[in-house]
Amino acid sequence: MTTERPLVLPGDTIPPHLIPSSTTKPLRLGPGLRHLPPSDIIPVVAGQLITNHQKNSMWVEYNNNRYLPTPGDLIIAQIHRSGPDFYYCSLSPYTPHATLPHLSFESATKKTRPQLQPGSIVYARVVLANKHMDPEVECVSQSTGKSDGLGELKGGMVFDVSLQFARRLLMAKSREEGKVEVLEALGAEGLAFEIAVGRNGRVWVGGEDPKAVVVVGRALKETDEGRLGVEEQRKLVRRLVKGMK
């Protein structure tokens, strides 16, 4: 791993020493890079160029606000209407609807499938996404046939956050790598709530007490919009919880 993370703009030339040169593994290009045959690699967005020599991969770390579906992403989708075989649901405003097959639920058959009303929300996984087709999502794991926590989200409230923040919340080590402490801090204050984070920048928060839900939502939004550090997050949570009582 190099610690150098230079700023790149679209069309910049990447310094050759930052392109990993492993001969055994294939070079993997992450988001924000374009390969122009034969051997040019060009950034297409503005961000920090990150090179991982061990994995022989490189990508551009950047923030955007428009969610682009990618297979495997966990998202929160809103049902728009039901068709003969699919639900049509929206992943982000003003984009074409994604399809959610009626049978993509745990142990669903034609008769036992869940009946979802327009406007209800589901926690789902993206299975199919490419630029020429509308995305498809599912609420069941293809391999195990179990829901794994996916499915309709009942009650609660949805809060919009930036895509970057949703990604940080979803990181396996969100505390160490993503520098998000806010959820742990809220839990430590004794608030009871459930949470589902969608990669499309939507966070569902459920709980008995609407006050607690609002506090969680505000803590998330203010952490995101105020770009707070770990210490500031703890302070914010203390302040919000104090104001709640």
Partner: peptide, 11 residues
């Protein structure tokens, strides 16, 4: 466009 992260050939 840069702020929206729209992929571009060049600036």
């Amino acid at each position: 466009l840069l702020s929206a992260g729209v992929p571009m050939r060049a600036t």
